[in-house]
Simulated scan of single mutants.
Amino acid sequence: MSSVELAEGIVEHKGTAAVCVFCASGPVPQHYLDLAAQVGTKIAKRGWTLVSGGGRVSMMGEVARAVRAGDGRTVGVIPRALVEREVADSDSDELLVVDTMRERKGLMDAHATAFLALPGGIGTCEELFEIWTARYLGMHRKPVVVLDPDGHYRGMLDWLHGLVDSGFATQHSLDLLTVTTDVDEALDACAP
């Protein structure tokens, strides 16, 4: 049975691996939903916990449903203002309802041992860049991984390499981001 509780502080995750997945929460083509389900199935097979944004629609919902279908554990974190908009995942093993996006990201970060970005839009990119920047600045040592099986992020990655070429970013910063096209390789990179 799932529970809904109000998050009042950051709780450090202890125990098994917990992968925070950033991905689309809006309408996407079916192959992206299939990718999310495949990722969720493989997270569950590894005995890991899923940490997500707490919505039950689109890719976010698919990955969570697949984890639970494989008897895995899910933790969702959602701002009160998005409970209706993103249709809160009331089936989560643990659903934390917070007041702000900053609280949401803080709790997602605290519950995770690794971060995995699937294809998504500006929200996914914002989450990815924030957690990757924190890794670069030494604020955490958790893996940050991008799973890009079809070139969704190709333009962004080309731009990032251009930042290195022009001196606005270091090669070291790019080296802290694992990019792969394969689900198993992505999850291997997330392993504790």
Results as ranks from 00 to 15, higher is better:
Gly40His: 05
Gly40Val: 01
Asp34Thr: 03
Ser52Met: 14
Pro29Asn: 04
Gln30Pro: 14
Gly55Pro: 15
Thr41Val: 02
Met60Ser: 06
Ile43Met: 08
Thr49Cys: 14
Gly61Gln: 10
Tyr32Lys: 13
Ala36Asn: 05
Thr49Phe: 10
His31Val: 11
Ala24Asn: 08
Leu35Ile: 05
Ala66Asn: 07
Glu62Pro: 11
Ala36His: 05
Val39Thr: 01
Arg68Ala: 10
Glu62Val: 03
Gly47Val: 11
Gly54Met: 13
Ser58Ile: 04
Ile43Asp: 00
Arg68Thr: 06
Ala37Asn: 01
Gly61Asn: 06
Arg68His: 05
Ala24Arg: 06
Gln38Phe: 00
Arg46Gln: 09
Lys45His: 10
Gly40Asp: 01
Gly53Gln: 09
Lys42Cys: 05
Ala66Ile: 02
Gly40Pro: 01
Met60His: 09
Gln38Arg: 15
Ser58Trp: 12
Val28Ser: 04
Gly61Tyr: 09
Pro29Cys: 04
Gly26Pro: 10
Val51Glu: 03
Lys42Met: 08
Val28Asp: 00
Arg46Asp: 00
Ala37Gln: 10
Gly47Asn: 07
Gly54Tyr: 09
Ala66Arg: 11
Tyr32Asp: 06
Pro27Lys: 15
Thr49Lys: 15
Val39Leu: 07
Arg46Val: 06
His31Trp: 04
Gly54Asp: 01
His31Glu: 04
Met60Lys: 11
Pro27Val: 05
Arg56His: 15
Arg56Gln: 14
Leu50Gly: 10
Tyr32Pro: 15
Arg56Lys: 15
Ala69His: 06
Gln30Asn: 05
Val39Asn: 03
Met59Ile: 07
Gly55Thr: 06
Ser52Lys: 13
Gly40Thr: 01
Gly53Arg: 14
Ala69Asp: 04
Leu35Thr: 03
Thr41Glu: 11
Leu50Val: 03
Lys45Gln: 12
His31Leu: 10
Lys42Gln: 14
Ala37Thr: 05
